[in-house]
Design a protein around this nucleic acid. Sequence first.
DNA 1: TCAAAAGTGTTTCGGATACACCCATGA
DNA 2: TCATGGGTGTATCCGAAACACTTTTGA
Lengths: 248, 248
Amino acid sequence: MAKRELPFQSRQEFHEEGHRVFLPHLSVDCVIFGFHNDALKVLLLKWKQGPWCLPGGFIKHRESIDQSANRILKERTGLDSIFLEQFYAFGDPAREKGKRVKGAWIGKRFITIGYYALVEYSQVFPQPDLLSSECRWWDVDEVPELIYDHKEIMNKALYTLRLSLNDHPVGYNLLPEKFTMPQLQKLYETILGEPLDRRNFQKQMLSLNLLIRLKERKTGGAHKAPFLYKFDKKRYSSALQTGLRISF
Amino acid sequence: MAKRELPFQSRQEFHEEGHRVFLPHLSVDCVIFGFHNDALKVLLLKWKQGPWCLPGGFIKHRESIDQSANRILKERTGLDSIFLEQFYAFGDPAREKGKRVKGAWIGKRFITIGYYALVEYSQVFPQPDLLSSECRWWDVDEVPELIYDHKEIMNKALYTLRLSLNDHPVGYNLLPEKFTMPQLQKLYETILGEPLDRRNFQKQMLSLNLLIRLKERKTGGAHKAPFLYKFDKKRYSSALQTGLRISF
DNA sequence: TCAAAAGTGTTTCGGATACACCCATGA
DNA sequence: TCATGGGTGTATCCGAAACACTTTTGA
């Protein structure tokens, strides 16, 4: 796993000299969603002797915002090229209420650009960075108090994700390669926050023609062995771009 | 109409000293939509001896991004408190390809935050600013070549507006206070870019309970006089917030 | 009097919803 | 053998889409 490449020797230096590497007044925060044990999770970071917050970072001088977000995501999760989408920029001058950090660069007001990511839980090995002591998954229903407006940012990400369900498929990045229909349904149910009819859900999903049913079944669990599916990558990607209409 | 309050004496000074007033590396661009003569319009600005571009501006040190966008909008249109929504941040380091302006502040790379606005055409008196020679409406289908990535920004705004039609009512800010059903339909048709059935459209709209039919009719035109409607402001606002589902 | 626009109502069809039965598996 | 979860099919209903006739008005 890649360690964060901070070109600084100390936190102090990073705070005051960051402007040489990063754009001033601008940050990127990532709401990283995962799915595990039938629950939607979000990856959070804990500052040393401080509160929990969203994994974030800054924009290098010659980097696009997308690249920054990808880099930040990679630093925290080790993952590359997963689903990552910008959803909103937060720019209230009072958003960092209670900010204590001082420094010519870091002490200033920051406007943050929010991205949300969908990643496969099992592939992630959470990595704290030099400024943080812990990095782990939280159930979205149980996230602790977050710093600044990060709770608001997370909620907006969740809201955006929910809305996008009506136009875009979800699952490719959140589920393992092979998964069962009940798993997929649980995913939708947790994102939407409401139960769905098992039979109607299956019909809808299959009618989208994005799923390939495998010969194998998921064994090991109690009860009847469910089929395994995988996504038809090609159709899935084109559905992501073109959009589709599903109503829940 | 408010003139742009540039606290600078010259363009030169503005370019080099802007950092005292505005955040560096950050701008706001507004895609201002209007509706006139059955066509969707967008308000564009022409630089002195330069290309056309979106009306934009910068973020003051103690101003929220929303406030900046509102201020910029007011400067160009004279309008206050109209529908204005952030839709995306554009941050490719190469987005300002061919940028010629020099200066310690303005010459740097800029990340721009896009807003789109819906305004009532007849109430707008386009105002060029100190840096521009012209400000006028263009039919969205006939916009000229735009500077940098402004065409892309406009297209993304249009796309966002289109998507939002499925969840939110439109018209309050784009139409005059009193309007006819055919006018409202034309508005939807131009935004969507496709014709709609007259009778079904009316049924759908009325079923939303956002319209109040007035006693008067629109006289003067040839043919049968259509009813005039106005929006039920209260229900309209709550529908804007809560969201609703219309399918086109 | 006629063409063009506007107002209104009915039929039809498809997709979403609700719902029931059978099968497999481990306890 | 039974409780639990998974697979599949059918009836129903509601809302969208398709569609036709009448009315008004200026030319």
